[in-house]
Design a protein around this nucleic acid. Sequence first.
DNA 1: CGCAGTTTTGATTCATCTCAATTTGTGTGG
DNA 2: CCACACAAATTGAGATGAATCAAAACTGCG
Lengths: 253, 253
Amino acid sequence: MPASLPSNVIPLHVPTLQSACSQCNLRELCLPLGLSDSELDMLDAVIGGRRKLKRGQYLYRSGDAFEAIYAIKAGFFKTDVLTEDGRDQVTGFQMTGEVLGLDGIGTELHTCNAVALEDSEICLIPFTDLERLSSEVHTLQRHFHKMMSREIVRDHGVMMLLGKMRAEERLATFLLNLSQRFMARGYSAAEFHLRMTREEIGSYLGLKLETVSRAFSRFQDEGFISVHQKHICILDIQGLKMIMTHPPSSSGT
Amino acid sequence: MPASLPSNVIPLHVPTLQSACSQCNLRELCLPLGLSDSELDMLDAVIGGRRKLKRGQYLYRSGDAFEAIYAIKAGFFKTDVLTEDGRDQVTGFQMTGEVLGLDGIGTELHTCNAVALEDSEICLIPFTDLERLSSEVHTLQRHFHKMMSREIVRDHGVMMLLGKMRAEERLATFLLNLSQRFMARGYSAAEFHLRMTREEIGSYLGLKLETVSRAFSRFQDEGFISVHQKHICILDIQGLKMIMTHPPSSSGT
DNA sequence: CGCAGTTTTGATTCATCTCAATTTGTGTGG
DNA sequence: CCACACAAATTGAGATGAATCAAAACTGCG
């Protein structure tokens, strides 16, 4: 629950408001600022409903027809791509307030799988409706473009991670990124629960699960974090940042 | 020169048409199909001019204010990102008909560097003008969204490459990708000139330049390609495809 | 309480990096 | 046009980080 909102807000149960962005306490995360009331009403009309997913369920699969993008109302997802020869690369982990499905716009087919890593709920936004509305509401158009661009920039960061960093730098970067995103949502930056397995972390980071496990153990031995299975406490943020930016041997190139 | 157009078209030199998309023989590459004449005229009005760059010149740098996206009229570019500790990851190579600058939309600052790898010429498209026009011309809006989405999907492919492939698979994938893009532009798919150094290829593929060089040599020894410095002939596409999809040892996860 | 999935840890192997020397190519100026 | 200097590419030998193979420990769920 975002810290910026009082936790004593009583949720409305009026049916017509159930899927209303204007009533959603996530709107600071997934919507542009400065929409007028009338614009918010238009946006409410665009939301094509909600959908709940159990842990392990697919929101969409590679090859599915693309029709909508999805805002995560609650929960945690991973996206991954497969090669024909069966190799599997996790391309991202998405949490509350983030958006899924942008990969499908280009070909009108989804190009990756999106799986819930815990029981989750999403808002479905039919893409043609979104495009129509965004051509009328300039701030929404701009917001959508920024969202796509940020996804590209994020992917560049992952390329840097995969192309240039060693195992421990990758894991430190990953933990600090998660920490920051939990913090932005009003959760603790220091203590959190991993929703994914070591294997999924490894797939995302281009490492084997044993390597991920060993790096966790070493961070713990060094006193940077404490690890109990999926429960993580960050004890020394600066230490992790040092690992991320100060490669043991020669930097550069 | 795209094969789909006769090579005897005489270029127009009327000043007012010099930067006109409607007269550009690249329009099949970088524009949506099915624009009416009046829509094309509107598009022409959006182009904010041209710019020529010498080899080695920067089109933009990380941190520059974002104002426009750039369509490559002729030439070859690389984009790269730097970490604070000086490591440098090439995030892509862009050729004629492709677009640069999408990274800057999210923060209104460019987040990577774009450098010409040969003398080049770009069309400058002021972003606010593009957004305005795309909200009026639906096919243009759709085309722009597809372009951004394809960039995301392309990046996912690079993540797969960096996260899951071995050195020779990466290089084979890279060569086949270049080959296909040259072919789409009417050039030979089998024979081409690399515009980038081994070090830049290595940076893109997450490898050291020596490893790239060794992989080239091995491909040549196996008879898949012939290499003379930057001149490449692909002799056995199937062989390269086998390398790409049939990892030597165990496949999968 | 036991089983299956997950995680940890250890021993060994292997792909790629690193360091170093040599060759080849390119651009410049006499 | 040639020679020189510098950048790029190749090749070899050895070091190393992560993968692989293997086994044990932990967790949570029925």
